[in-house]
Structure formats: structure tokens, C-alpha cells
């Protein structure tokens, strides 16, 4: 891990049209190359809004985001080539096979079929999906869809990978396969920004954790330091409850 900043978030605020509150409130953050950064927070804290801004899906109301020193305002295409996104939804075409989906999404990064095909088959093999490469996505289980969803985000070997709750609703085996793959990717130099409600998983996976609540980063450190600095905390879940409280966070 080096100390070169890959992501610089400078005083980012976001207020959605018609909203009376800030979804993100003057956030400043720096994420270095090689990190696995866990962005944790209760529902409605602003995790998805922050990830969406970092991916260029929405624009901030104020502030600036730089990725590798570049801004979406001036270098959107360059940034998009360097990032991979794994959305929370199964962002796949149910009527296409796993292979057809992956070949299509890979081609959106300008990769030719001849270059893409071995990469697709290799990833499918690594995640135990090769026998199902020619099956339609609509026939897949939730865990299988999650694994294909992950592959679709890493086909172009991105420098920076965003994952929004990549293991939600999957079985233990699929979860382990996904976390194993993420660790391998990180070892080969991919910086990972990751949101999750699975705090044990985050504790195991992340090199750095930021806890966000009501649009503000309220704590940031390595999982071990966050645990040690919090009274009576045995794990990241204790830290999380201590910082964000026990009250329910329903919102509409």
C-alpha cells in the first residue's frame, strides 16, 4: 500500500432536489492506492449517495472529487475507464446468458471479443460459474447472480473498484467466494471502496474503515484501531453501535 492519494474528496455536500436536509454534509476524505476502504453506516446515512458521486452517477451540490487527480467535470471518460462498479442491484440482463452479459459489459470498455472471451471464462471459472456460462441469468440463484455481478465490474481490470453491498442476500459459500476474489484483486493492486452492513465481513476485508452517519464521516481508522479505541468494543459491530446508537434508522 502506498500513500499516493487515489481519491480526494474535498468538502463534498449533496442536497437532493426538494429535500430539506443534506444527504452529505461537507465531507473531506482521502483514500490511498491499494486500500480496501469500508464505508459503513446505518440506512440513510449517505453511503450510496457518496458512492454514486464517486462513480460519477450523480453530481455533488458543492465540493470536488478528484480520482487520480482528475475531476469528472473535465475527465469523465478517463475516470470511467479506470473504475469498476458493482451496484447493489443485479445489474444484469436476465434473458442473456452469463457469458453474453459479461461480453457485452466488457465491450463497453472498448475490449474486443477476442481479448474479452478468455478473461470472461477465467473469471467465471475462478468463481465456480464456468459450467453455467451459457445459462440465462434468470435461471441463476441470488448467490450466482452476485458473483456474475462482481465479474461484470472487474473485467477491464480497474484500478479502483466500487462495491455497494456486494454480498447482500447471498449464502455463506458465495459470500466467501466473493470476499476471496476481492482480496485477490486487492493483492494485484486494485483499490477497493466497499459498503456493507456485514460488519464482520468488513472487519475481515478492510484495511481502513470510515463510519458515516447523517451525511458526515464520524470516525475513520483501521478496524483494529477503531475497536481498541472504543470502550468495551470487541469487534466492529460494537464500535458501530457505540458511534451510531441503538435507535432504529427507518426513513422514507
Amino acid at each position: 500500500m502506498d500513500n499516493t492519494p487515489l481519491i480526494e474528496i474535498k468538502n463534498i455536500s449533496k442536497q437532493y432536489k426538494g429535500a430539506t436536509f443534506l444527504s452529505l454534509d461537507a465531507i473531506n476524505l482521502q483514500i490511498n492506492k491499494g486500500e480496501v476502504y469500508g464505508l459503513l453506516g446505518p440506512n440513510g446515512a449517505g453511503k450510496t449517495t457518496l458512492i454514486s458521486i464517486l462513480c460519477g452517477l450523480i453530481k455533488p451540490t458543492s465540493g470536488e472529487v478528484l480520482i487520480s487527480g482528475k475531476s469528472f467535470k473535465t475527465s469523465a471518460k478517463e475516470i470511467q475507464k479506470a473504475i469498476g462498479v458493482v451496484p447493489q442491484e443485479y445489474a444484469l440482463y436476465p434473458k442473456l446468458t452469463a457469458k453474453e452479459n459479461l461480453l457485452y459489459f466488457g465491450s463497453m470498455f472498448g475490449m474486443t471479443k477476442s481479448k474479452l472471451k478468455p478473461i470472461v471464462l477465467s473469471h467465471l471459472d475462478q468463481l465456480g460459474l464456468l459450467p453455467f456460462a451459457d445459462k440465462k441469468i434468470k435461471t441463476f440463484s441470488g448467490g450466482m447472480k452476485r458473483r456474475v455481478n462482481l465479474i461484470a465490474g472487474i473485467l477491464h481490470n480497474p484500478e479502483l473498484l466500487f462495491l455497494d453491498e456486494p454480498t447482500v442476500g447471498v449464502d455463506v459459500q458465495s459470500k466467501q467466494a466473493i470476499t476471496k476474489k476481492l482480496k485477490e484483486l486487492n493483492k494485484t493492486g486494485t483499490t477497493i471502496i466497499y459498503t456493507s452492513h456485514h460488519l464482520r465481513e468488513a472487519q475481515d476485508l478492510c484495511s481502513l474503515v470510515g463510519i458515516i452517519d447523517s451525511g458526515k464521516i464520524i470516525a475513520e481508522n483501521t478496524p483494529s484501531k477503531l475497536i481498541s479505541e472504543t470502550n468495551d468494543a470487541r469487534n466492529l459491530e460494537d464500535v458501530f453501535i457505540e458511534l451510531t446508537g441503538r435507535e432504529l434508522r427507518d426513513y422514507a
Binding site: G56, L57, V85, E89, Y90, A91, L92, P94, A152
Partner: peptide
């Protein structure tokens, strides 16, 4: 179905 979000990125 979320594919649009992926394409946007």
C-alpha cells in the same frame, strides 16, 4: 433492472 446504472459508469 440496474443495468442502466452499470452502463452509466
Amino acid at each position: 433492472q440496474g443495468t442502466f446504472v452499470r452502463l452509466q459508469t
